[in-house]
Amino acid sequence: MNPAPVGAAWLRAAMLMTLLIVAPAYAQDPEALKARHSALAEQLTNNQFQRPLYLESRQISDALQGDIYAVIEQPYGVVGPALQASTHWCDILILHLNVKSCRVSSGPDGDVLRINIGHKFEQALEDAYLFEFTYRVAAATPDFLQVLLDAEDGPLGTSRYRIMLEVVALDARRSFLHLSYAYAYGFAASIATQSYLATLGRNKVGFSIVERNAEGQPIYIGGMRGVIERNTMRYYLAIEAYLSALSAPPTTRQEKRLNLWHSAIEQYPAQLHELERGQYLTMKRKEIQRQQRNASDAAGK
């Protein structure tokens, strides 16, 4: 498709839409998630990620969905509380290069995460898209956590945004995590995203291997499923970086999270490389300072 009629605004909206984090809320419990861990034993052991991780995606009618299942080498006593607080999620989400700001406010139904999503360069918040996700802890027990974030409406007729995180204790030192997100889209959103994929995103691929070439090298999935797979991985790696940095002194955790996230995405350059480390760190330090400043101003009102 010729992208000219779409225009810069549509392309910008398409790019931002591909970064949204949303997911269906499956009715899970500790035993169901443990059963999923057992069922994925082979995939968690042998995969292209070189870590105990399994990723899947699907496109059904007018909806996209991505899921990651991963073993975390940390006890649930650490992982569960760390991922339960809404304020911790802003520390996680800001690691993504397209998340410009995140802050928590109180709403009639509980906490709300106000997330600005924009480009992968420095950008004023008024030029980024603002999304409001209601935050709910659906379950929190000594061995199981389920967190849900919902936003009913989005740009270009998109809707039913939802992100779900589930974690269960495997044993005294390991946890099993499930991150899932999805959203529904209409005709305008489909056209805008296809325009992006035909231009700026034409060389982007996901992680699922659809076939191999004559030399045996993998050919990765593209299109809209490639989009959702890339962002599934980006947000999972943000969670992983956040958890890994907990062992550092509080004054150094922020910097460690940033460096861990960038190192992690560089393990998959074909899918996730965007900015060099110095560029990423400079941008994120400024965005985090702005986020902290805005939170301080809001608290003082």
Rank of each mutant, 00 (worst) to 15 (best):
M1D: 10
N2T: 08
N2C: 10
P3R: 15
V6T: 14
G7K: 11
A8G: 14
R12G: 06
R12L: 15
A13F: 06
A14N: 09
M15C: 08
L16T: 14
M17E: 10
T18N: 03
L19S: 11
L19A: 11
I21R: 10
A23Y: 10
P24L: 11
A25E: 00
Y26P: 12
K34E: 01
K34I: 04
A35L: 05
S38R: 15
Q43E: 10
Q43V: 09
L53G: 01
Y54K: 01
Y54D: 10
R58P: 02
S61E: 09
D62H: 05
A63H: 15
L64S: 08
I68K: 04
I68Y: 03
Y69D: 14
Q74R: 01
P75Q: 07
Y76V: 15
G80F: 02
S86T: 07
W89L: 00
W89P: 06
I94V: 03
V99S: 03
S101I: 13
V104D: 08
S105T: 12
S105M: 15
S105F: 04
G107D: 00
G110T: 09
G110Q: 00
D111N: 11
D111H: 14
L113V: 05
I117N: 09
I117P: 04
I117T: 12
G118W: 11
K120D: 13
K120F: 08
Q123V: 03
A124K: 13
D127R: 13
A128I: 03
A138I: 00
A140G: 06
A140H: 07
P142A: 15
A151D: 00
D153Y: 03
G154C: 13
P155Q: 03
L156Q: 10
T158P: 06
T158F: 06
S159A: 14
R160C: 12
A169G: 14
D171W: 15
R174K: 07
L177T: 10
L179I: 08
S180N: 14
A184S: 13
F187S: 13
A189D: 13
S190A: 13
S190K: 11
A192V: 04
L197Q: 05
L200E: 11
G206M: 07
F207S: 01
S208R: 06
I209H: 03
V210Q: 04
N213A: 11
P218H: 11
P218T: 11
I221W: 07
G222D: 00
R225E: 03
T232H: 06
Y236W: 11
A238K: 04
A241I: 06
Y242L: 04
Y242I: 03
L243W: 05
S244T: 05
L246G: 07
A248Y: 02
P249H: 13
P249K: 08
R253A: 00
E255C: 05
K256N: 12
N259D: 12
I265V: 01
Q267L: 12
P269W: 02
L272Q: 10
E276Q: 14
E276N: 14
R277E: 11
Y280N: 06
R285L: 07
I288R: 06
I288K: 09
R290P: 11
N294T: 12
S296E: 15
D297F: 12
D297W: 13
D297P: 06
